[in-house]
């Protein structure tokens, strides 16, 4: 029990920097949703139930535009398709019971996935839950503050706090790179992501890169095996 609680606490502590990084996004979401004509109850309800920045911002705009139900459904699926791969990789590294397999995805986000996979050697359900609860609490707190005070609460821009998110992801990425091939895949992925960005592929970028870059990595490792100089 004590070990579980300490894992939970460790998970909670591991997302503190990401809570700060997520704050401007939550405030921005509240502003966008208000401008789209949503009332405070709807804005907070989305943060409590959907709990996904991109989906919430997209849905706020679709609701204000009175979009067709099929448009809403397709948009949501496209924006969240990458979670399929998140679940597949997390269950590869973290042992979960049948019940935990249904509970863990409830509050899963990019940031939770990032810290959980970086801690995969010591990760468990309690760690994952700690990270999820920490981010869920801060996301909803900052949504509420955004509803109450608007965007003028903290000057995130001049403190460069929006830079904490890419910085955290970069640090976690570097900590995961163990071999030359890992580096190669990271560079492949960054280049493909850049090309997808130029092509304007939006949220499909994650799913494209998460499939293409590992395949390139496998191809390179096969080439290395066949090479006569390979050790």
């Amino acid at each position: 029990m004590k070990t579980r609680f300490s894992s939970f606490r460790r998970g909670f502590a591991s997302v503190l920097s990401l809570c700060v990084a997520g704050a401007p996004v939550a405030l921005a979401y509240a502003a966008v949703a208000r401008n789209a004509g949503l009332n405070p109850l709807q804005i907070q309800l989305m943060s409590l139930t959907i709990y996904s920045a991109a989906t919430q911002i997209a849905l706020a705009q679709l609701l204000s535009a009175d979009a067709a139900v099929w448009t809403v459904i397709i948009t949501i699926v496209v924006l969240n398709l990458h979670y399929l791969l998140y679940g597949l990789t997390l269950t590869k590294y973290i042992k979960l019971s049948r019940f935990e397999r249904f509970l863990a995805p409830l509050l899963l986000t990019d940031s939770v996935y990032a810290v959980a996979i970086a801690e995969r050697e010591h990760g468990n359900f309690a760690f994952l839950l700690g990270a999820e609860v920490g981010l869920f609490f801060s996301w909803n707190l900052f949504t509420a503050l955004g509803i109450l005070f608007g965007n003028g609460l903290i000057d995130f821009q001049s403190a460069h706090l929006d830079f904490v998110a890419p910085l955290t992801f970069f640090v976690l990425l570097i900590s995961m790179l163990r071999t030359r091939l890992d580096f190669t895949v990271a560079i492949f992925a960054a280049v493909i992501a850049g090309l997808c960005h130029i092509a304007g592929l939006g949220s499909m970028t994650v799913i494209i890169v998460a499939i293409v870059a590992p395949m390139l990595g496998i191809w390179v490792s096969e080439l290395q095996k066949r090479s006569p100089t390979a050790s």
Partner: peptide, 8 residues
Amino acid sequence: IAIFSVLV
């Protein structure tokens, strides 16, 4: 590794 690169 690929997903972290995309996020960055």
